[in-house]
């Protein structure tokens, strides 16, 4: 396998994982207006759980890594466990953070949750091996066929794209369903939505948990490819990369999400690799973040609804007349 092939395959896998994140955040933020600034925590818990349930029993405090829940689960169970972990944690977090309060407070609280989680996991070594993190994670599906993820990255690419496709179909069906329309109603006018009989708190919790489940799945998918996971991989700034992506692409529609994820985490963060190195090592990385911040600000300034904005929703109830049919003899222009 050539280095280029490996690189492209890895990039596609990252694209798949980021697309899952984009889909989850777009469902929460774009459709329901729930601002999840702690998104990365739910991805992280999925990654940790997928790691420990495949690594086998923990070797205990004296060994090079220790963790809880050690097991050797076969293929579908590892990703299911990751998904369930994401859902469960988001249920717990959602129960106290989704109370009705100002949106900016809520965002701040979730940001704080993200910081708390990072500190707890770093400080508590018996949980997930502290700040050193877990290594040596395998790929259970590949093991069925006797291959590893790094040996056959193309196989893993196909697999992750399949996962994304399934989630994508499911979520876009959900967002076109009556449930999805009630999410938009809640986002656009909370008062009116609850006057129509929608249970705002419950809807927000539902969308938070579904997003959390997708986040957990994306974490599992990522960790089984890269094989290691540690607190360094889920700083709170990672959440903002995905937020920038969906903001730039366009919130509230999936074309925008795909475009944004392609532009920001994939193309944009990869371009600097091919530029000649300037200054001291690490300068390019800092400048990358500066440009992300600027792109974010310019986008809010010039295209607050993204490059591909959400289309207005037209719903024609069954049996209704076509719009405009009732005023046939409008004044001639």
């Amino acid at each position: 396998m050539s280095a280029w092939g490996f690189y492209v395959a890895t990039l596609l896998i990252y694209f798949a994982v980021d697309l899952l994140s984009g889909i989850a955040l777009n469902l929460q933020f774009g459709y329901a207006g729930v601002v999840n600034f702690g998104y990365i925590v739910f991805q992280a818990v999925g990654a940790y759980v997928a790691a420990v349930v495949t690594l086998g029993p923990s070797l205990g405090a004296g060994s090079y890594q220790q963790y809880i829940l050690g097991a050797h689960l076969p293929f579908p169970l590892d990703l299911l466990a990751a998904t369930a972990a994401g859902a469960l944690l988001s249920l717990l977090v959602g129960l106290f953070s989704l109370r009705r309060m100002r949106r900016d407070y809520q965002a701040a609280v979730l940001l704080i949750v993200s910081l708390i989680a990072l500190q707890v996991v770093s400080a508590d070594v018996p949980l997930f091996n502290g700040s050193n993190g877990l290594t040596g994670v395998g790929w259970p599906l590949g093991q069925l066929f006797g291959v590893t993820a790094t040996q056959s990255p193309w196989l893993y690419t196909v697999w992750s794209l399949v996962v994304v496709a399934v989630v994508f179909v499911g979520v876009s069906w959900l967002s076109r369903s009556p449930w999805g329309r009630s999410l938009r109603a809640m986002r656009d006018n909370q008062g009116a939505a609850s006057a129509m009989g929608l249970n705002i708190t419950s809807l927000r919790l539902q969308v938070f948990v579904i997003g959390g489940a997708i986040a957990g799945l994306s974490g599992g998918l990522l960790v089984e490819y890269i094989g290691a996971w540690s607190p360094g991989a889920w700083g709170y700034a990672e959440t903002f990369v995905i937020f920038t992506a969906i903001f730039v692409g366009g919130v509230g529609n999936y074309r925008g999400v795909v475009l944004g994820v392609l532009l920001v985490p994939v193309i944009f963060l990869e371009i600097p690799r091919f530029l000649p190195a300037i200054g001291y090592p690490g300068l390019t990385a800092s400048l990358e973040w500066v440009v992300i911040g600027l792109a974010w600000m310019l986008c809010i300034f010039f295209r607050p609804r993204g490059i591909l904005p959400e289309r207005r929703l037209h719903v024609t109830p069954p049996g209704a007349l076509e719009p405009g049919a009732l005023q046939p003899e409008a004044a001639p222009r």
Binding site: A107, F240, F247, L283, S286, L287, G293, W296, I300
Partner: peptide, 21 residues
Amino acid sequence: LFEMMMVTLGMSLVIDYSIQA
């Protein structure tokens, strides 16, 4: 209001990483 918070977040990324650079 809410988008304004997003703007300040962008400002903080720009300032922090400029200082880092």
